[in-house]
Design a protein around this nucleic acid. Sequence first.
RNA 1: GCCGGGAUGGCGGAAUUGGUAGACGCGCUGGACUCAAAAUCCAGUGUUAGGAAUAACGUGGGGGUUCGAUUCCCCCUCCCGGCACCA
Length: 892
Amino acid sequence: MLPNYSPKDIEASTQQQWESNETFLAKQDSNKPKYYCLSMFPYPSGKLHMGHVRNYTIGDVLSRYHHMKGFNVLQPMGWDAFGLPAENAAMANNVPPAAWTYSNIEYMKQQLKLLGLGVDWTREVTTCKPEYYRWEQWLFTRLFQKGVIYKKTSTVNWDPVDNTVLANEQVIEGRGWRSGALVEKREIPMYFFRITQYADELLTGLDTLPGWPEQVKTMQANWIGKSYGVRFAFEYEITPKNNHLPNPPPGGEGTGALPSLPGGGGISATNNLLWVYTTRADTIMGVTFVAVAAEHPMATLAAQGNAKLAEFIEECKHGGVAEADIATMEKKGMDTGIKVTHPLTGELVPVWIGNYVLMGYGEGAVMAVPAHDERDFGFAKKYNLPIKQSIAVKDQSFSDTAWQEWYADKENGVCVNSGNYDGLNLSQAVDAIAADLAAKGLGEKKVQFRLRDWGISRQRYWGCPIPIIHCRTCGDVPVPDDQLPVKLPENVVPDGAGSPLAKMPEFYECTCPKCGGKARRETDTMDTFVESSWYYARYASPQCNTGMVDKASAQKWLPVDQYIGGIEHAILHLLYARFFHKLMRDEGLVQGDEPFKNLLTQGMVVAPTFYREMEGGKKLWINPAEVEVEVDAKARPIGAKLIADGQPVVIGGTEKMSKSKNNGVDPQAIIDAYGADTARLFMMFAAPPDQQLEWSDTGVEGAFRFLRRVWNLSAELGDIGKMSGDLGNLSTDDQALRRETHLALKQANFDFSRFQFNTVVSAAMKMLNALEKSRATANRAVLSESLSILLRLLSPMTPHISQTLWKELGFGEDILAASWPEVDEAALVQDEIELMIQVNGKLRGSLLVAKDASKAEIEQLTLAHETVQKLLAGATAKKIIVVPGRLVNVVA
RNA sequence: GCCGGGAUGGCGGAAUUGGUAGACGCGCUGGACUCAAAAUCCAGUGUUAGGAAUAACGUGGGGGUUCGAUUCCCCCUCCCGGCACCA
């Protein structure tokens, strides 16, 4: 055995052993129960960052823990290899995205191996390879034929200088990130997945996932946003200039079903109806205007011959499409001059264009009730529109000068100033109003979802080509199976202007599979969320070349038993993957309704930031490694300076590690300096997985010191693994060591079950502390037992050192094959228990009692306690509360 | 703006979910070893007062429920994640 702990030596050789023994190959035929442990696969950005290390360590800890618990474990790894950063890197370095991506993968794979992850690398999946995306294209053609995928127009960010579509993150303060041009909204045709058709199932399915965090389920439920409301119409008269109405927009998405009322959304040329949807139909008598989106046909109509309106509509087109921007921008509007008829009162109501009304949501038009909606209230105040109270709450008085919380109270509000509906509460009023609207043929109750269909067309190069051929005579024709995959050329360097594929005739020129005529291939690629929506299923049979998945393999491994990834994916990725699972199920490819049985969402890795203010207010961010923090006598930070020049720097906040703030710590440097076990151990120790983790270099050193102490103690104890002896008739000290060991083990077992690995590490540290104290005096059999428990407990987190010591000390050949230690309850029993004494809830002392002392005895002893007597000062206690095993509280 | 989450010593965090607040680690202070330093080991370490025993205060802020609240309820502040083309 090596005298000193040398991670470099033991980690490399342990990893070689695992590789030559094929330890982590998932067994296709095994009678052990399966455990499919999946960490979200990385985007190959260049090198591993701390977030990856955290994610994959958590996954590996769980995999190894289950391995030892007797499960047949599958832990795969792959690459989410399509995406925008590759195009940006390509433009910056003049390297094709493919070459950049593949070299990143090669480097990061080697880094992952250094971490000692128990990954089955034979199942590696790379989404930018034709073997993978070919099946995505295949599914696309199936879904297109079924009508689950359809085409419609959608609004995007348009950069008028670069003539290109921008991602939301490429829009900075309303301008294109490269050109600096003011961004505009533009309507372009796109393919959509009809996810709204599955809205109800995606919502109710959440109830079948007890292994998911409540937080994530709540977020998904709110995102899907099922609401029960009323869809109704305002009638209006045709004036001469309305004669050439634009076509009505496609029907509301809603459930994906056809609307049962004529009109289909927007306005109708035949019925002259302006449709809106509301969840607050009880406030319908308070409607004082209607607001429509700038793109609404009625807005277009009103702008004909009205230059000011046309100008306002044009203004509304400025700015990006991100919801956060739209929700926070200044609410603006303009009267169209058009009046529509209130369906119940018959009053004429003005129609306004509002920049905050979105065409893609619901009907693209909303009824406005300033008295009972805060946004409408603000709008009405700004433009002097009338405010009509139609809801009252007992003991509250209404005033239109200022908004009050209760105006929108759904629980206690009853209708007022509402004719027949006066006195009704929300649900009664909605029922009555919906019935009256239905009787007039002007409305009905409707269930609506906030969720919108998933637009997947991207005008980008580095993505999976959409397998459609456009033919003048046959229309949009899916690429036939025998022509799949539609391969993406890999030698292209995009230039940031427009779509590269649209400039490549050799790519888009083709013949129509139906008529054989000249045709044009679709040049848009798919949203990269599509690849990550089904990779978990592909891992079951990654090399299958006869289908998307091999059905038997999928049945064996799915669903994923434990999925681990960042909380930032709580909604989009996890919802899309759940959706895809249902699509694949409906194609007969997989079984079950949900892909991920249990979900663990990890927090971010953060680090302190430091900067210097440069000329012009620009900040120069300085890496924490180059900074020395000065502290006062009580170790409080009072300042910081750059080590290089000794001059002060400003201490910024603690933020997510990023290139832009230059506060990243390279995991490679940690592995090089301390080894993978230390990096893993510190990652697990610093915080529970779901919390954000603050990086600390000194903490890493602490983790290393702990492992070195484990090594040194083991070296001292020699071949203690071969020691077996009687654990009965022990001295008090030996009993105490056993008790501490098993107490810590019990804690650790509980903490493993709730994924709180930081306290598992604490338990291991306590064990080591106890072992070190008694190493010279304790019974060798007891020491052997304690050390064997400690090594097994640590092995999921620090597999290299645990395996090495396990073997060296003679416990066995392979620690992964060892059984998980069990708590000996008999070792925990104590003869005497210390109870805390409280008087009026304040701690005043303690009491040692026999483990089986009766309540009466305890009360008696407590009252006899010196401090209690002093505090009672002769008075009798009103009440004595005894919490068994914990405390006694005397109420004076 | 909307949805979700968080806030505990100088720092990361613990408290098995209403019962000893601060486990474990980092840092710091003192000591041992050393020619010296590093490393290592031992002891101490919430704040304030006190020599000490001890007392008061203390889990972002304000209120409430309870014998007892970091934990439950109401209100507020700040920070973080998501908001549909970053992944």
